[in-house]
Amino acid sequence: MSLLLNLANTFLYMVNTYIVVPTADDYSLSLGAPATVCGVIIGSMAVAQVFSSVYFSAWSNKSYFKPLIFSSIMLLLGNLLYALAYDLSSIAVLIIGRLLCGLDSARAVNRRYISDCVLLKLRMKASAGFVSASALGMACGPALAGLLQTKFKIYSLTFNKNTLPGWVMAVAWLIYLIWMWISFKEPVHDFEENHFPQDSGVVGQSEHGIVQSLLISESKDDEEDERDYDESEEASVKSHEPASSISSAYKLLTPSVKVQLLICFMLKYAMEILLAESSVITTFYFSWPSSSVAIFLAVLCLTVLPVNAIVGSYLTNIFEDRQILLASEIMLLVGVILSFRVTGPYSVSQYISSALITFVSAEVLESK
Protein backbone atom coordinates (compact mmCIF):
# COMPACT_ATOMS: atom_id res chain seq x y z
CA MET A 1 0.00 0.00 0.00
CA SER A 2 2.85 2.39 0.78
CA LEU A 3 4.35 1.86 -2.67
CA LEU A 4 0.95 2.47 -4.24
CA LEU A 5 0.65 5.72 -2.30
CA ASN A 6 4.10 6.72 -3.49
CA LEU A 7 3.12 6.12 -7.13
CA ALA A 8 -0.19 7.93 -6.57
CA ASN A 9 1.77 10.94 -5.35
CA THR A 10 3.84 10.84 -8.54
CA PHE A 11 0.72 10.62 -10.69
CA LEU A 12 -1.09 13.46 -8.91
CA TYR A 13 1.90 15.76 -9.06
CA MET A 14 2.27 15.31 -12.82
CA VAL A 15 -1.46 15.92 -13.27
CA ASN A 16 -1.04 19.03 -11.12
CA THR A 17 1.81 20.22 -13.32
CA TYR A 18 0.08 19.89 -16.69
CA ILE A 19 -3.60 20.43 -15.89
CA VAL A 20 -3.16 24.22 -16.16
CA VAL A 21 -1.39 24.19 -19.54
CA PRO A 22 -4.46 24.42 -21.84
CA THR A 23 -6.06 27.31 -19.93
CA ALA A 24 -3.09 29.24 -18.53
CA ASP A 25 -3.21 31.86 -21.30
CA ASP A 26 -6.95 32.49 -20.79
CA TYR A 27 -6.37 32.77 -17.05
CA SER A 28 -3.64 35.36 -17.63
CA LEU A 29 -5.88 37.41 -19.92
CA SER A 30 -8.76 37.29 -17.44
CA LEU A 31 -6.48 38.83 -14.80
CA GLY A 32 -5.33 41.61 -17.11
CA ALA A 33 -1.93 40.13 -17.94
CA PRO A 34 -0.60 39.27 -21.42
CA ALA A 35 -1.26 35.76 -22.68
CA THR A 36 2.47 35.06 -22.75
CA VAL A 37 2.53 35.23 -18.94
CA CYS A 38 1.26 31.65 -19.14
CA GLY A 39 4.90 30.69 -19.63
CA VAL A 40 5.70 32.15 -16.21
CA ILE A 41 2.69 30.44 -14.66
CA ILE A 42 3.64 27.03 -16.01
CA GLY A 43 7.40 27.36 -15.70
CA SER A 44 7.43 28.73 -12.16
CA MET A 45 6.46 25.33 -10.82
CA ALA A 46 9.36 23.64 -12.60
CA VAL A 47 11.85 26.28 -11.43
CA ALA A 48 10.71 25.97 -7.82
CA GLN A 49 11.08 22.20 -8.05
CA VAL A 50 14.86 22.65 -8.36
CA PHE A 51 15.01 23.94 -4.79
CA SER A 52 12.48 21.49 -3.37
CA SER A 53 14.51 18.50 -4.54
CA VAL A 54 17.37 19.57 -2.26
CA TYR A 55 15.60 19.82 1.08
CA PHE A 56 13.17 16.98 0.40
CA SER A 57 16.11 14.69 -0.39
CA ALA A 58 17.73 15.62 2.91
CA TRP A 59 14.44 15.20 4.78
CA SER A 60 13.94 11.71 3.34
CA ASN A 61 17.11 10.60 5.16
CA LYS A 62 15.04 10.60 8.35
CA SER A 63 11.47 10.03 7.20
CA TYR A 64 9.30 9.41 4.17
CA PHE A 65 5.93 9.92 5.80
CA LYS A 66 6.50 13.47 7.08
CA PRO A 67 7.76 15.01 3.82
CA LEU A 68 4.93 13.38 1.86
CA ILE A 69 2.36 14.71 4.33
CA PHE A 70 3.91 18.17 4.32
CA SER A 71 4.07 18.18 0.52
CA SER A 72 0.40 17.20 0.22
CA ILE A 73 -0.72 19.94 2.61
CA MET A 74 1.26 22.64 0.83
CA LEU A 75 0.14 21.45 -2.60
CA LEU A 76 -3.44 21.69 -1.38
CA LEU A 77 -2.82 25.28 -0.27
CA GLY A 78 -1.01 26.12 -3.51
CA ASN A 79 -3.94 24.92 -5.60
CA LEU A 80 -6.38 26.86 -3.43
CA LEU A 81 -4.38 30.03 -4.09
CA TYR A 82 -4.38 29.23 -7.80
CA ALA A 83 -8.17 28.88 -7.79
CA LEU A 84 -8.82 31.94 -5.61
CA ALA A 85 -6.63 34.23 -7.74
CA TYR A 86 -9.54 34.70 -10.17
CA ASP A 87 -11.91 36.16 -7.57
CA LEU A 88 -9.07 38.13 -6.00
CA SER A 89 -8.09 39.48 -9.46
CA SER A 90 -4.43 38.99 -8.59
CA ILE A 91 -1.84 37.55 -10.94
CA ALA A 92 0.61 37.59 -8.01
CA VAL A 93 -1.57 35.18 -6.01
CA LEU A 94 -1.78 32.96 -9.08
CA ILE A 95 2.00 32.77 -9.48
CA ILE A 96 2.54 32.33 -5.73
CA GLY A 97 0.17 29.38 -5.80
CA ARG A 98 2.16 27.75 -8.60
CA LEU A 99 5.46 28.48 -6.88
CA LEU A 100 4.12 26.90 -3.72
CA CYS A 101 3.22 23.78 -5.68
CA GLY A 102 6.73 23.59 -7.13
CA LEU A 103 8.46 24.22 -3.81
CA ASP A 104 6.62 21.24 -2.33
CA SER A 105 7.34 18.70 -5.02
CA ALA A 106 8.05 15.33 -3.41
CA ARG A 107 9.35 13.62 -6.55
CA ALA A 108 12.78 13.31 -4.94
CA VAL A 109 11.13 11.43 -2.07
CA ASN A 110 9.24 9.23 -4.55
CA ARG A 111 12.45 8.19 -6.28
CA ARG A 112 14.28 7.73 -2.98
CA TYR A 113 11.53 5.51 -1.60
CA ILE A 114 11.73 3.18 -4.61
CA SER A 115 15.52 2.93 -4.50
CA ASP A 116 15.76 2.42 -0.72
CA CYS A 117 12.59 0.67 0.43
CA VAL A 118 11.47 -1.59 -2.41
CA LEU A 119 12.82 -5.13 -2.56
CA LEU A 120 15.48 -5.70 -5.18
CA LYS A 121 13.37 -8.20 -7.11
CA LEU A 122 10.51 -5.68 -7.30
CA ARG A 123 12.58 -2.55 -7.83
CA MET A 124 12.57 -2.76 -11.63
CA LYS A 125 8.78 -3.06 -11.69
CA ALA A 126 8.47 -0.19 -9.21
CA SER A 127 10.72 2.00 -11.36
CA ALA A 128 8.64 1.14 -14.41
CA GLY A 129 5.55 2.03 -12.40
CA PHE A 130 7.10 5.39 -11.53
CA VAL A 131 7.72 6.15 -15.21
CA SER A 132 4.23 4.99 -16.18
CA ALA A 133 2.60 7.03 -13.41
CA SER A 134 4.49 10.12 -14.55
CA ALA A 135 3.52 9.57 -18.18
CA LEU A 136 -0.13 8.97 -17.36
CA GLY A 137 -0.15 12.07 -15.18
CA MET A 138 1.26 14.13 -18.04
CA ALA A 139 -1.51 12.87 -20.31
CA CYS A 140 -4.35 13.03 -17.80
CA GLY A 141 -3.59 16.61 -16.78
CA PRO A 142 -4.47 18.26 -20.12
CA ALA A 143 -7.26 15.74 -20.74
CA LEU A 144 -8.86 16.57 -17.41
CA ALA A 145 -8.57 20.28 -18.19
CA GLY A 146 -10.47 19.65 -21.41
CA LEU A 147 -13.37 18.19 -19.43
CA LEU A 148 -13.63 21.15 -17.07
CA GLN A 149 -15.29 23.44 -19.62
CA THR A 150 -18.10 24.79 -17.45
CA LYS A 151 -18.92 27.88 -15.44
CA PHE A 152 -20.94 28.49 -12.28
CA LYS A 153 -20.72 30.34 -8.98
CA ILE A 154 -21.21 29.26 -5.38
CA TYR A 155 -21.68 32.32 -3.21
CA SER A 156 -18.75 34.56 -4.20
CA LEU A 157 -16.53 31.80 -5.55
CA THR A 158 -16.23 31.41 -9.31
CA PHE A 159 -15.86 27.99 -10.88
CA ASN A 160 -14.87 28.02 -14.55
CA LYS A 161 -12.32 26.46 -16.89
CA ASN A 162 -9.59 28.65 -15.36
CA THR A 163 -10.25 28.01 -11.68
CA LEU A 164 -11.60 24.46 -11.78
CA PRO A 165 -8.13 22.89 -12.27
CA GLY A 166 -7.10 24.44 -8.95
CA TRP A 167 -10.27 23.36 -7.16
CA VAL A 168 -10.13 19.82 -8.55
CA MET A 169 -6.49 19.36 -7.59
CA ALA A 170 -7.11 20.79 -4.12
CA VAL A 171 -9.84 18.19 -3.55
CA ALA A 172 -7.59 15.47 -5.00
CA TRP A 173 -4.74 16.36 -2.64
CA LEU A 174 -7.15 16.46 0.31
CA ILE A 175 -8.37 12.94 -0.49
CA TYR A 176 -4.79 11.78 -0.96
CA LEU A 177 -3.78 13.38 2.33
CA ILE A 178 -6.46 11.46 4.23
CA TRP A 179 -5.55 8.22 2.43
CA MET A 180 -1.88 8.83 3.16
CA TRP A 181 -2.49 9.50 6.85
CA ILE A 182 -4.47 6.28 7.26
CA SER A 183 -2.58 3.80 5.09
CA PHE A 184 1.07 4.80 4.76
CA LYS A 185 3.55 2.85 6.88
CA GLU A 186 6.87 4.47 7.62
CA PRO A 187 9.71 2.12 6.61
CA VAL A 188 12.40 1.40 9.16
CA HIS A 189 15.51 3.54 8.82
CA ASP A 190 18.58 1.58 9.81
CA PHE A 191 21.05 3.87 11.48
CA GLU A 192 24.18 2.38 12.99
CA GLU A 193 24.56 3.46 16.55
CA ASN A 194 27.87 4.22 18.16
CA HIS A 195 29.43 4.44 14.75
CA PHE A 196 31.97 7.14 14.19
CA PRO A 197 33.25 8.28 10.79
CA GLN A 198 36.85 7.71 9.99
CA ASP A 199 37.72 11.36 10.34
CA SER A 200 36.18 11.69 13.83
CA GLY A 201 38.25 12.50 16.86
CA VAL A 202 37.61 9.15 18.58
CA VAL A 203 38.88 7.02 15.76
CA GLY A 204 41.67 9.48 15.04
CA GLN A 205 42.91 9.30 18.62
CA SER A 206 42.77 5.50 18.75
CA GLU A 207 44.58 5.14 15.46
CA HIS A 208 47.15 7.66 16.61
CA GLY A 209 47.75 5.65 19.79
CA ILE A 210 48.19 2.40 17.90
CA VAL A 211 50.52 3.94 15.37
CA GLN A 212 52.49 5.62 18.16
CA SER A 213 53.01 2.32 20.00
CA LEU A 214 54.11 0.61 16.82
CA LEU A 215 56.55 3.36 15.96
CA ILE A 216 58.36 2.92 19.26
CA SER A 217 59.32 -0.65 18.39
CA GLU A 218 60.14 -0.02 14.75
CA SER A 219 63.36 1.04 13.14
CA LYS A 220 63.94 4.34 11.38
CA ASP A 221 63.44 2.73 7.98
CA ASP A 222 60.08 1.37 8.99
CA GLU A 223 59.21 4.76 10.43
CA GLU A 224 59.87 6.44 7.10
CA ASP A 225 57.83 3.82 5.27
CA GLU A 226 54.98 4.29 7.69
CA ARG A 227 55.10 8.06 7.27
CA ASP A 228 55.00 7.72 3.50
CA TYR A 229 52.04 5.37 3.77
CA ASP A 230 50.17 7.74 6.09
CA GLU A 231 50.74 10.65 3.73
CA SER A 232 49.48 8.70 0.73
CA GLU A 233 46.46 7.50 2.69
CA GLU A 234 45.71 11.04 3.84
CA ALA A 235 45.89 12.27 0.25
CA SER A 236 43.52 9.50 -0.81
CA VAL A 237 41.04 10.46 1.91
CA LYS A 238 41.17 14.11 0.88
CA SER A 239 40.48 13.19 -2.72
CA HIS A 240 37.27 11.45 -1.63
CA GLU A 241 36.04 14.26 0.60
CA PRO A 242 32.71 15.84 -0.44
CA ALA A 243 32.80 19.08 -2.38
CA SER A 244 32.55 22.18 -0.23
CA SER A 245 31.23 24.52 -2.94
CA ILE A 246 29.50 24.53 -6.31
CA SER A 247 32.75 25.39 -8.10
CA SER A 248 34.63 22.53 -6.46
CA ALA A 249 31.78 20.15 -7.27
CA TYR A 250 31.87 21.28 -10.89
CA LYS A 251 35.60 20.55 -11.07
CA LEU A 252 34.95 16.97 -9.97
CA LEU A 253 32.66 16.34 -12.94
CA THR A 254 34.09 14.50 -15.90
CA PRO A 255 33.58 15.92 -19.41
CA SER A 256 31.03 13.21 -20.23
CA VAL A 257 28.97 14.09 -17.15
CA LYS A 258 29.06 17.78 -18.07
CA VAL A 259 27.77 16.93 -21.54
CA GLN A 260 24.96 14.84 -20.06
CA LEU A 261 23.93 17.68 -17.75
CA LEU A 262 23.88 20.09 -20.68
CA ILE A 263 21.75 17.66 -22.69
CA CYS A 264 19.36 17.29 -19.76
CA PHE A 265 19.03 21.06 -19.47
CA MET A 266 18.43 21.60 -23.17
CA LEU A 267 15.84 18.84 -23.54
CA LYS A 268 13.90 20.17 -20.55
CA TYR A 269 14.18 23.67 -21.95
CA ALA A 270 12.80 22.60 -25.32
CA MET A 271 10.01 20.53 -23.76
CA GLU A 272 8.88 23.28 -21.40
CA ILE A 273 8.78 25.83 -24.23
CA LEU A 274 6.73 23.44 -26.35
CA LEU A 275 4.19 22.73 -23.62
CA ALA A 276 4.02 26.16 -22.02
CA GLU A 277 3.44 28.06 -25.26
CA SER A 278 1.18 25.50 -26.93
CA SER A 279 -2.04 27.26 -25.94
CA VAL A 280 -0.75 30.66 -27.09
CA ILE A 281 0.49 29.43 -30.47
CA THR A 282 -2.55 27.31 -31.28
CA THR A 283 -4.94 30.10 -30.29
CA PHE A 284 -3.07 32.77 -32.24
CA TYR A 285 -2.49 30.82 -35.46
CA PHE A 286 -5.28 28.24 -35.54
CA SER A 287 -7.95 29.66 -33.16
CA TRP A 288 -8.10 26.40 -31.24
CA PRO A 289 -10.31 26.39 -28.14
CA SER A 290 -8.81 25.20 -24.88
CA SER A 291 -10.57 21.84 -25.25
CA SER A 292 -8.76 21.18 -28.54
CA VAL A 293 -5.44 22.18 -26.97
CA ALA A 294 -6.15 19.79 -24.11
CA ILE A 295 -6.79 16.87 -26.47
CA PHE A 296 -3.66 17.65 -28.47
CA LEU A 297 -1.45 17.78 -25.37
CA ALA A 298 -2.99 14.61 -23.93
CA VAL A 299 -2.27 12.67 -27.12
CA LEU A 300 1.23 14.15 -27.30
CA CYS A 301 2.04 13.16 -23.71
CA LEU A 302 0.71 9.64 -24.25
CA THR A 303 3.56 9.03 -26.70
CA VAL A 304 5.87 8.70 -23.68
CA LEU A 305 4.85 5.10 -22.97
CA PRO A 306 5.34 3.58 -26.46
CA VAL A 307 8.52 5.59 -27.05
CA ASN A 308 10.10 4.37 -23.81
CA ALA A 309 9.05 0.81 -24.62
CA ILE A 310 10.55 0.92 -28.12
CA VAL A 311 13.79 2.52 -26.97
CA GLY A 312 14.19 0.31 -23.92
CA SER A 313 13.40 -3.06 -25.50
CA TYR A 314 14.41 -2.63 -29.13
CA LEU A 315 16.72 0.25 -30.06
CA THR A 316 19.14 -0.26 -27.17
CA ASN A 317 19.77 -3.81 -28.39
CA ILE A 318 20.76 -2.59 -31.86
CA PHE A 319 22.54 0.73 -31.34
CA GLU A 320 24.96 2.10 -28.78
CA ASP A 321 23.71 4.66 -26.30
CA ARG A 322 25.87 7.42 -27.77
CA GLN A 323 24.43 6.73 -31.23
CA ILE A 324 20.88 6.98 -29.90
CA LEU A 325 21.77 10.20 -28.06
CA LEU A 326 23.32 11.76 -31.15
CA ALA A 327 20.37 10.83 -33.37
CA SER A 328 17.91 12.16 -30.78
CA GLU A 329 19.79 15.44 -30.49
CA ILE A 330 19.74 15.88 -34.27
CA MET A 331 16.01 15.13 -34.41
CA LEU A 332 15.38 17.53 -31.52
CA LEU A 333 17.18 20.25 -33.47
CA VAL A 334 15.10 19.40 -36.56
CA GLY A 335 11.89 19.64 -34.54
CA VAL A 336 12.85 23.03 -33.09
CA ILE A 337 13.81 24.43 -36.51
CA LEU A 338 10.60 23.09 -38.04
CA SER A 339 8.55 24.94 -35.42
CA PHE A 340 9.60 28.34 -36.81
CA ARG A 341 7.48 30.15 -39.35
CA VAL A 342 9.85 31.13 -42.16
CA THR A 343 7.75 31.73 -45.26
CA GLY A 344 4.10 31.35 -46.05
CA PRO A 345 1.29 30.58 -43.62
CA TYR A 346 1.91 28.55 -40.49
CA SER A 347 0.00 25.31 -41.00
CA VAL A 348 -1.45 22.90 -38.47
CA SER A 349 0.50 20.01 -39.97
CA GLN A 350 3.78 21.90 -39.56
CA TYR A 351 3.07 22.66 -35.92
CA ILE A 352 1.94 19.14 -35.04
CA SER A 353 4.91 17.59 -36.85
CA SER A 354 7.41 19.86 -35.12
CA ALA A 355 5.79 19.31 -31.73
CA LEU A 356 5.77 15.53 -32.15
CA ILE A 357 9.41 15.39 -33.29
CA THR A 358 10.55 17.72 -30.51
CA PHE A 359 8.64 15.96 -27.75
CA VAL A 360 9.54 12.41 -28.78
CA SER A 361 13.22 13.29 -29.24
CA ALA A 362 13.30 14.94 -25.83
CA GLU A 363 11.69 11.88 -24.26
CA VAL A 364 14.26 9.58 -25.84
CA LEU A 365 17.06 11.77 -24.51
CA GLU A 366 15.51 11.81 -21.05
CA SER A 367 15.11 8.04 -21.00
CA LYS A 368 18.83 7.63 -21.73
Score class of each variant (00 low, 15 high):
Phe184Leu: 05
Ala126Asn: 00
His195Pro: 01
Ser349Val: 12
Leu94Glu: 09
Ala85Phe: 10
Ser339Lys: 05
Leu120Ala: 06
Ile182Asp: 11
Ser313Pro: 01
Asn16Met: 05
Ala270Asp: 04
Pro142Asn: 02
Phe159Tyr: 04
Leu75Trp: 03
Ile318Leu: 13
Gly129Leu: 05
Leu174Glu: 01
Ala48Phe: 15
Pro34Tyr: 03
Ala128Arg: 02
Arg341Met: 04
Lys62Asp: 12
Ile281Met: 15
Phe340Arg: 04
Ser247Cys: 07
Val40His: 04
Val311Glu: 08
Glu272Met: 14
Ser71Phe: 09
Ser278Ile: 09
Phe51Trp: 12
Ile91Leu: 11
Val311Leu: 07
Ala249Thr: 07
Val259Thr: 15
Asn16Trp: 01
Trp181Ala: 11
Ser328Asn: 06
Glu207Ala: 07
Gly39Cys: 13
Val15Ile: 15
Trp181Asn: 08
Lys220Gln: 12
Ile182Cys: 01
Glu320Val: 05
His240Trp: 11
Thr17Leu: 15
Trp181Cys: 11
Ile95Val: 15
Thr283Met: 12
Trp173Val: 02
Leu267Lys: 09
Gln323Leu: 13
Leu275Thr: 04
Met45Lys: 02
Pro165Gln: 10
Ser206Asn: 09
Ser256Cys: 06
Val211Phe: 11
Cys101Leu: 08
Ser353Val: 10
Gly97Asn: 02
Arg107Ala: 10
Leu164Gln: 02
Val257His: 08
His195Asn: 10
Tyr86Gln: 00
Ser256His: 13
Leu157Met: 07
Leu75Pro: 01
Asn160His: 02
Tyr229Met: 11
Ser353Ala: 15
Ile96Asp: 02
Ile210Tyr: 14
Met266Asp: 02
Thr343Asp: 12
Leu103Lys: 01
Val259Pro: 01
Arg341His: 08
Leu325Met: 15
Ser347Gly: 02
Ser247Tyr: 12
Ser72Phe: 12
Arg322His: 13
Leu267Glu: 06
Val188Asp: 13
Ala309His: 09
Glu329Arg: 10
Phe191Val: 15
Val131Tyr: 07
Ser232Arg: 15
Ala35Asp: 11
Ser278Phe: 12
Leu103Ile: 08
Ile273His: 13
Gly204Ala: 12
Glu234Ala: 09
Phe184Lys: 03
Ser63Arg: 14
Pro197Ile: 08
Leu84Ile: 07
Phe284Gln: 14
Tyr250Ser: 07
Ile263Phe: 13
Asn308Tyr: 07
Lys62Ser: 13
Ser347Val: 01
Asp190Leu: 12
Ser354Cys: 07
Val15Thr: 06
Ser53His: 05
Tyr64Val: 08
Leu120Asp: 05
Ser115Met: 13
Tyr176Cys: 00
Phe191Arg: 14
Thr282Gln: 11
Gly204Glu: 11
Asp221Ile: 06
Leu261Ser: 00
Phe51Pro: 06
Ser361Trp: 05
Ile318His: 12
Asp221Gly: 14
Cys301Tyr: 13
Ala145Arg: 06
Thr343Gly: 05
Arg112Gln: 11
Tyr18Ile: 02
